[in-house]
């Protein structure tokens, strides 16, 4: 009977099946690939096309201007200032967030009592939207009613009170502090996960050898976190180069471009100055900068990986 059914199977059906298994990858990938093409790849390419236009974004007024926008960008001090601010942000993210995060991770790892509760509370800032955090700290920094100045005044430190977000010398630093506040918990949990894989026997062996907790931290735990640290640096650098939210919400890039980032400058150029073409030039330049730096960072971190 089985033989009969096999013989009876039409060749056409077998062919259809072979075809369907050959087409299967295409069918499975199609939805994702189409979405990525439409909403990621096409905009990326289109951004470069738009960078060659002078256009306010409305109607049929677009005019092809060749590389004019790119020449303008090369001489645009605000763009280079904002790129510099991006790099400052990256630098301080790495220098401030990661050390604090490592210390907090070790604290949580060591503190047996209530460490779970602390971890839950520490994580809260990460769950808030940037708008909530931005508006919250705008009020915290408020020169008249904000708690920062109020507390300084309460201690009699009237000279220390500042217009934290309004002073061009302070604005960037003030915002970076908030960026750190929001992102430290992220790196903390990252390092906590790294510490979780620290072999317990190693800790016990070191104690038997008479090593103090501080020695264990510097000589054993820190080296153990090397891989996690590398990942954290990559994430912090790439994240900083494309940063937008908190700065836009808290200062809009001001005052006088003091806290301008590439992304906020791009945004304002397009949606406030209605220079859609030039804004796209900034966006495209940003893409080039981020891709280059990301590629270089990956390279460097790979090399570290192979060396160590």
């Amino acid at each position: 009977m089985t033989v009969a059914t096999h013989r009876a199977e039409p060749v056409r059906r077998r062919r259809a099946r072979a075809l369907s298994s050959a087409l299967a990858p295409a069918v499975f990938l199609a939805p994702a690939v189409v979405l990525l093409l439409v909403y990621l790849l096409y905009p990326l390419v289109d951004s470069f096309r738009l960078s060659l236009l002078a256009w306010n974004g409305l109607g049929e007024t677009a005019r092809y201007v060749g590389l004019e926008n790119w020449v303008r960008l090369a001489h645009d001090q605000v763009f280079w200032l904002s790129a510099g601010n991006n790099i400052l942000l990256a630098l301080f993210s790495v220098l401030i967030q990661l050390p604090i995060a490592i210390v907090l991770a070790v604290v949580l790892d060591e503190a047996s009592h209530g460490s779970r509760l602390l971890k839950i509370l520490y994580f809260l800032p990460l769950l808030m939207s940037s708008v909530a955090v931005g508006v919250l700290f705008k009020n915290v920094y408020d020169p008249n009613f904000g708690p920062v100045n109020s507390i300084l005044e309460a201690f009699g430190l009237y000279d220390w009170t500042q217009d934290w977000l309004g002073d061009p010398h302070l604005a960037l630093a003030s915002v970076i502090a908030v960026v750190c506040w929001q992102n430290i918990p992220f790196y903390m949990v990252l390092f906590l996960a790294g510490l979780a894989s620290f072999p317990r026997e190693l800790n016990e062996a070191a104690r038997l050898d008479g090593a103090s907790e501080i020695t264990i931290f510097w000589r054993l735990k820190l080296p153990h976190l090397k891989g996690t640290f590398r990942t954290a640096v990559l994430l912090a650098v790439i994240g900083s180069l494309r940063y937008f939210d908190l700065i836009y919400i808290m200062t809009g890039g001001g005052p006088d471009n003091a806290s301008e980032l590439m992304a906020t400058y791009m945004y304002r150029t397009v949606f406030s100055s209605f220079q859609l073409g030039y804004g796209s030039t900034i966006a495209s330049a940003m893409f080039i900068v981020v891709t280059l730096i990301a590629a270089v960072s990956f390279r460097i971190s790979r090399r570290f990986e192979t060396e160590i």
Partner: peptide, 15 residues
């Protein structure tokens, strides 16, 4: 299998 060539028959149909 059972006197029939099975090289290209899908697994589920080989009994």
């Amino acid at each position: 299998i059972g006197g029939q060539t099975m090289n290209d028959v899908p697994p589920a149909e080989r009994r």
